[in-house]
């Protein structure tokens, strides 16, 4: 697997930061509250690291929005909220207390849309930077134990870009974790495209 140089990582971090910033602006309008955004952390994970990293809390219940992409490079883009963060978001958006354990249409619809906004912003920024035309599926929503949801995905993928972003709305802290999972060889293509784009 190709390693990302520090320079590339910095550039990637900046691109993602711009994307997340856009998403925050959109969410801002949706929520009607000002959103405070922290600079996202970007980490590259190899297959072993992914497994080790994600299996630290396999039983945690999470909400997962998944967007598949394919083209020059292929993989999955996922956004994950802890059930606590998911509930806070839905509360803010729908204005009702949402039972933490409940998976219902309202929560699904709302969280899928929030995931859609954030994922589109990040993927859009990367796509723009690389000038790559990718095709996407419609995003899907899943909820369950972290291990159960991610385990089957991770096995098939080669590398991941983990982006952790924290935002605070009305003094509530909400944490979302992006995971860009690349298919075998796709990560190398991605890095090559990144190098080309930044040098050009």
């Amino acid at each position: 697997m190709v390693r990302l140089s520090d320079d590339l990582l910095d550039a990637l971090r900046e691109v993602i930061n711009i994307g997340v910033g856009k998403a925050a602006g959109t969410l801002n309008e949706l929520l009607g509250h000002h959103i405070l955004l922290e600079v996202p952390q970007v980490v590259v994970l190899g297959p072993d690291e992914m497994a080790a990293h994600l299996c630290q809390r396999p039983d945690e219940t999470v909400s997962l929005v998944v967007l598949q992409f394919s083209g020059q490079f292929s993989g999955l883009s996922t956004l994950m909220f802890t059930s606590d963060s998911a509930s806070k978001l839905v509360d803010l958006l729908v204005g009702e207390e949402t039972p933490v354990d409940e998976l219902d249409v309202i929560k699904t619809g709302t969280l899928t849309e929030v995931g859609n906004i954030l994922l589109n912003a990040v993927m859009g920024s990367i796509g723009n930077l690389l000038g790559s035309r990718l095709s996407y599926t419609i995003p899907t929503y899943q909820e369950g134990a972290l291990g159960q949801l991610l385990q089957p995905i991770i096995r098939q993928e080669s590398a991941a870009l983990e982006v952790t972003t924290r935002f605070t709305v009305q003094s509530r802290q909400i944490t979302g974790e992006f995971l860009l999972l690349f298919e075998v060889l796709s990560f190398d293509t991605f890095v090559a495209a990144l190098e080309t784009a930044l040098q050009g």
């Binding site: 949706l30 619809g109 849309e113 994922l119 589109n120 993927m123 996407y136 599926t137």
Partner: peptide, 16 residues
Amino acid sequence: RPVFAGGPPVLFSPQL
């Protein structure tokens, strides 16, 4: 707008 540039699908949920 980004859809016209080939961006990912956009969802508008019935709740919002």
